[in-house]
Design a protein around this nucleic acid. Structure first.
Lengths: 238, 238
DNA sequence: TGATATCAAATCCGATCGGATATAGGATTG
DNA sequence: CAATCCTATATCCGATCGGATTTGATATCA
């Protein structure tokens, strides 16, 4: 699920407050986002505004608005007077850059989170981890989509726990799980990740900043090694 | 000047290629951006689409497009059925987060740039530094705007020199110079910065990654100290 | 056969319009 | 006098329309 389909952060009080009228642009955003995640729109594939008009039954205005948002998030690209396309798959270099950046930010975030994170948030992490573990038994083809979503929440929650909202936003803007899922959606290498998640949680529980950073660093390095196999298997994709 | 007013990166070959017809939305983007930098729009001030229609003489469509881009960059905020406003000034916490993030990324970028950056880019850095130094003699009130722009280019060029485009984008998305300028546009504390820039350039010239990272780290720390005085002078702003 | 010119369809870009909502200010009532 | 209600205005949101451009297909010619 897209986390920032709406710029308004939803807090726990939001449900009790008055419900603002829904924005059509949000639903369009979610629809396109879902089509990206489900590979209904292939990497690099054209995204025609007029087609979406016919398909979704709304006018161009909210579609343009949604595509504009997706563009600044790097999930689609636009060429003037030509139109929108889905972003290309990550190439080898981009993938390396992605992990390089994550290594700069996420261990730092984990260390701070170990100190400042609330117990309630750690509980949420725990339940996410359990859900991911439960997915090991499911059909890998289906399970990986579920896994990617929860993994994304897991990492975002730690980033939020760091207390540095800008770091969290920088990581969220990477849309790591979208790009990785579109690169490698047939993966099922989740069992190792579950172990690594458990180590991260243990360090956070122990409020051990050093251990949390190291556990996160190790997790990211190993994750990158798992994904690196893609380019050895399919060398032409690089 | 806004660097990413257009999503298309302009390379050195762009001028030789066919010049695509101009996008009205780009000019609107630049106009609003200029109004933000010139404080014609105050922090938190409302930005009415209809006013811009009258002021700029274009229809709502390109204005919405430009504002939408500015929104996802965090320079303006939007409330549904209410409208757009300029982003608030940085508060103390946000400023600290900004520098915390820069400290994670920029020394790393400088270290890599020391190894991979081209000599030509270092020359460009040098000329930017000289321009900034020349501004010391000018009227501080005017000079600081010029300084902020060149300082932004300086840091972006090093980030680009790192070879990691994602790191560069993450830093660019912070719009550091916009926020700092809107926070503290009456500053003139640029002499120290010029010395620090010289040290960074020296380390890059010497292809010394360690020294470049340390020079950058020191520069950012000292910059943050210069800006931190704002909140001691105007405690209510925090 | 291959390259070029022409043409038509698809598509985007920007303008304009009506309906819906929020906000501010004044009127009303206790 | 204070609080509430109501109305008017400003504004946004979404729909629709015409013009401009790109793009792909067809036809023509060397």
């Amino acid at each position: 699920m897209p986390k920032d389909s709406s710029p308004e952060k939803q807090s726990f009080t939001a449900s009790t407050l008055l419900r603002r009228p829904t924005r059509l642009g949000d639903e369009v955003y979610n629809a396109i986002y879902a089509q990206l995640m489900s590979h209904k729109i292939a990497p690099g594939g054209r995204i025609s505004v007029d087609n979406l008009v016919r398909e979704l039954g709304v006018s161009q205005t909210p579609i343009r608005e949604a595509l504009s948002r997706l563009e600044t998030q790097g999930l689609v690209v636009k060429r003037h007077l030509v139109g929108y396309s889905a972003a290309d798959q990550l190439n080898k270099s981009r993938l390396e850059q992605l992990y390089e950046l994550r290594l700069l930010l996420e261990p730092f975030a984990a260390a701070k989170a170990a100190v400042t994170m609330t117990d309630a948030s750690i509980e949420t992490l725990e339940s996410l981890a359990q859900e991911m573990k439960a997915l090991e038994a499911e059909d890998p083809q289906i399970a990986y989509g579920q896994f990617a979503q929860r993994d994304s929440e897991f990492h975002d929650l730690i980033a939020a726990g760091s207390g540095n909202e800008l770091v969290r936003e920088a990581l969220a803007n990477l849309h790591t799980h979208v790009h990785l899922f579109r690169l490698f959606y047939h993966s099922q290498a989740t069992a190792e990740a579950n172990d690594e998640h458990a180590q991260i949680i243990a360090a956070l529980r122990g409020r051990d900043a050093e251990a949390a950073a190291e556990a996160m660093r190790s997790h990211i390095v190993r994750s990158s090694e798992r994904f690196a196999t893609f380019f050895t298997r399919y060398p032409r994709a690089s």
